[in-house]
Design a protein around this nucleic acid. Structure first.
Lengths: 285, 285
DNA sequence: AGATCAATGTTAGCATTCTACCATAATCAG
DNA sequence: CTGATTATGGTAGAATGCTAACATTGATCT
């Protein structure tokens, strides 16, 4: 009763996935999991879109479907439809879950992310991105609870362009600041949210005194930065959790990364392609 | 109250059908009725199949969809899907701003954050939080582009409870693993997203072999973790930016922090109050 | 009836999906 | 390490979906 001679099939997707569960290749495992988790929303997917979302190639999707006994996406959808429900909409999944305290926190983070659109739309955004792009050297710094996020940001940015350094206050990186090459343009990206670090403001003053462009990524409550540089961007932070979420900030950082990369897409893509090779050389940690 | 002035479309299919109900031609009436009665099963239909089933020509279907405000079947299906999915609460905020490439990235991040609700609602979530809360010692590790986020997470968690350590693979922290005190319960929180680190899986195996509870925070495409521990939580990661955003992941981490803190609110608040003092002692960097 | 115009269909072309064929990369045995 | 085997991807072409431009039908009005 499996699917030997008959092209069509009495068994639903999940059963078929279980049947081959033991003998999956890497790509197939990715596909199997993705299909399992997104079964309800398969209606409007196509081989190509699944390939894009899972990171495998289109033909691998096609092959896997065949292995499951479907002659293609159409056959799969047909099977899903025939077996009762066939509901296109992801259904109730969303709103009911957003109740309660956790739901509130989640919604606040999501809203804060959406609010980033207003920051990106500001004219200063383009200026800041251009300044980062144009700088010969970029310094990134962050404090306390966002120090790690700043380090990650520096790491990502350095994938896409060279001469990006994460600096800590007592770090050797500072030496380079104090003896700047006047022929070089440099840029400081400072990330600081509440509770603010005392070092932040003097650091920005110093950088400005040396003629550096300074981009500050901070939260709404920051009042000192705007006086020192026009390139200040805000995330809203009123979560009222035990500790402030840094999710929206991380999203903002990712937008900066993306915008800078988009200034020179060709270079970004080339560097990105070379990155995995680079990684293997490192300790991976 | 939702969609008065906007020309493009916040409303689902049925609303649109009602809007044009009064002025339908013969073919359009047929189509409208068929669409109404088969709305649930539209997923696998195509312009041609609808045409065949209703007896009108393909182009008439196409035209009617246009009249309804959809640019084609794809747009219709997309609309149907989104209706079921969580509505973005603050979408009104930046509706106009959410256009373009950056707008797409922002929306994807926001959606990914909202989708976290499904993870938090899983029964495993409560188990994982309880395990973290109950453990005598908590180890946190993360790799590559989320190493910093993992470090921040460890830092935040250690504000709220003691004996939290961020460990790197080649770190001295590992020594403590290899000579465990059998009287202590320990817990590993591992954060890993694409591109996955090779160390991750062996690390989890090792921890499990030692009887540790293991919580894995990863993305949808991770296939190895679920086989090793029940406490695997996913963020969706299909941004297609130059580099994946880690914003939703950071939000997830913050939710973990919050949930763990909520296990013992009194202690969390007490430690939080003592924290600024503690900070002043540190180098702040 | 004949003119006029809206509604619908036909044809053709472009875009997209899916798959056949071959090339490359990863894996494993010895 | 080498070579065999398997998994995966790339390219190109057939099939299908969608729509623009033109043709036809059918309804309405005088």
């Amino acid at each position: 009763m499996t699917d030997r001679s008959e092209p069509q099939s009495p068994s639903p997707l999940l059963l078929r996935l279980q049947a081959v569960e033991g003998s999956l290749t890497k790509s197939e495992a990715v596909l199997a999991q993705w299909l399992t988790r997104n079964e309800a929303a398969l209606g409007l997917e196509t081989g190509a879109t699944i390939a894009a979302k899972t990171g495998v190639s289109e033909i691998t999707v096609s092959r896997f479907l065949r292995r499951l006994g479907y002659r293609g996406m159409a056959a799969l959808k047909e099977d899903l439809l025939e077996r009762g429900a066939a509901q296109l909409p992801g259904a109730d999944l969303g709103l009911r879950l957003l109740d309660g305290e956790m739901g509130t926190l989640i919604r606040r983070d999501a809203e804060a992310v959406l609010a980033l659109a207003a920051q990106v739309a500001r004219p200063e955004w383009a200026e800041a991105v251009a300044a980062i792009h144009a700088a010969d050297g970029v310094f990134v710094t962050g404090f306390q609870t966002v120090k790690g996020a700043a380090a990650d940001f520096a790491r990502r940015l350095s994938i896409l362009r060279d001469r990006v350094r994460f600096v800590a206050a007592h770090d050797s990186g500072l030496a380079e600041w104090l003896a700047p090459d006047p022929a070089e343009t440099r840029c400081l990206i400072l990330i600081d949210i509440i509770p603010y670090a005392r070092e932040a403001e003097p650091l920005v003053r110093l950088a400005r005194a040396q003629g550096m462009a300074v981009v500050v990524l901070t939260d709404e409550l920051n009042t000192w930065a705007a006086a020192l540089t026009p390139h200040v961007f805000f995330v809203s932070s009123k979560a009222h959790a035990y500790v402030e979420s840094s999710g929206p900030l991380a999203s903002l950082l990712s937008l900066v990364t993306h915008s800078v990369a988009a200034q020179d897409p060709a270079r970004a893509k080339a560097r990105l392609a070379a990155w995995p090779a680079l990684l293997r050389e490192l300790a991976l940690f």
